[in-house]
């Protein structure tokens, strides 16, 4: 995570960076390590867009506690239109890897990332990259074709860079796929919701379309403390 954070900080130095989902908190690592001057470079602004309010809340609370003024989060589901008023220089996404849908779920997140930059910026996509299995190769090809058809080109592919120790595939590796908009790239019309049933049918795995719009946080006054329903007190006497 530290290596990936350093890489992201260097790649997006001085830029406005949108995270399209961030389940592994790379955004927080990048902002914090920059603030603590472990890196003397990093994005000028980071906004995390995630459909899990717990993640958004955790990012905001951490940013507030550590005075990370450049870090913020916004509740957002990538099937909804991207907020048009927000324009970034770059985007980062580590989406569902699309093993069961040829990368359609990756393309949805990448599309929102492109929209976040007004189709003028750069993107870093974390995506499966395995030498043995067939599906990661197909997904990589489909995502690269999608990027090219959207007016981007593949700038770099850092092959088999990460390993996530997934329970169902501990050896599966992933790469950073870096894309960049072509000069004078045409901005498509308004961002639209993604509703095509074929595109959504296997979004989270075979026969698993999205059902949850947002994961809502149960608000608590004593955030960070053990929940009352986890224990009871047995008193002396």
């Amino acid at each position: 995570m530290v290596l990936q954070s350093e890489l992201v900080a260097r790649w997006a130095d001085g830029k406005k960076l949108a995270f399209i989902g961030d389940g592994d908190a790379i955004s927080v690592c990048v902002a914090y390590l920059h603030k603590r001057e472990i890196f003397n470079y990093g994005p000028s602004e980071i906004v995390v867009f995630d459909f899990d309010e717990r993640i958004c809340g955790a990012v905001k609370r951490f940013a507030d506690r550590e005075r990370l003024t450049q870090l913020d989060a916004q509740l957002y589901n990538c099937l909804d239109p991207f907020p048009a008023s927000l324009i970034f220089d770059s985007f980062y996404t580590n989406p569902p890897w699309g093993a069961s849908n040829g990368g359609e779920s990756v393309k949805a997140f990448v599309q929102r990332g492109m929209e976040a930059t007004g189709y003028q910026g750069e993107g870093m996509i974390v995506i499966a990259d395995d030498s043995d299995l067939p599906w990661p190769k197909k997904v990589l090809a489909n995502v690269q074709q999608f990027a090219i058809s959207s007016g981007f080109f593949v700038q770099k592919m850092m092959s088999q860079l990460h390993q996530y120790h997934l329970d169902d595939n501990p050896d599966l590796r992933s790469c950073n796929l870096l894309i960049k908009a072509l000069p004078g790239n045409t901005v498509p019309p308004d961002s639209l919701p993604i509703t095509d049933p074929q595109r959504l049918a296997h979004f989270y795995g075979r026969d698993n379309p999205p059902k949850v719009k947002y994961v809502r946080e149960q608000k608590r006054l004593d955030y960070g403390k053990a929940s009352d329903d986890e224990y009871s007190l047995e008193l002396f006497g």
């Binding site: 093993a99 599906w135 329970d167 595939n169």
Partner: peptide, 18 residues
């Protein structure tokens, strides 16, 4: 037959903690 390891041989998949 399904998931991130679809297509992997069973003898390589069933190993270690799996």
């Amino acid at each position: 037959a399904v998931g991130n390891s679809i297509g992997a041989s069973g003898d390589r998949y069933i190993a270690g903690r799996v």
